[in-house]
Amino acid sequence: MSEALFRNEPVPSTPYVADGVSISLAAPLKRYSLRARTAEALETVLNVKVPQKIGATEGGIACLGPDEWLLRTAAETAMPTGAGLPVAITDIGERSICLIVEGPRAAELLMTGCPLDLDNFAVGRATRTIYETVEIIIIREGEDRFHVEVWRSFAAWLWTAFTAAASH
């Protein structure tokens, strides 16, 4: 078969660095949408701890809703399909990309278009929200470090919006 094909990313691979904040494309991740009525139902299938509270993250799993979790991992382990069980595990590894927004002005940058109060958004918390009109998922990885998941088709726009706002 032909040699390994190249990945085509919607944003530059070179980080954008501005005063107090940088924006960069995260390395490829595996992503799964995990759905079930309870965290326990998933724990049985995955054999890992699954956070109960909306907004909580644990071991790369973020609880986004009462029946929805997002698993992000760099590991190459195979995922169970959950076939026949009352759970839904769906591969969404390439649905979004992750932008890393980092620096003392990271929260300030996100708040240029996100209406959440990120001063009161604890490290480790994750949520789906919106930046102007584009849906994103924000995960606070550190005091000055956020992961922003955005669907691929919107990524170029979001990159332009972030870099414009960061330059101001």
Binding site: R35, A88, T90, I92, E94, R95, W151
Partner: peptide, 12 residues
């Protein structure tokens, strides 16, 4: 119903 919906428009 035990069924869940996930948008995969942009996965593929």
């Amino acid at each position: 119903l035990d069924v869940w919906l996930t948008s995969t428009t942009e996965q593929y």
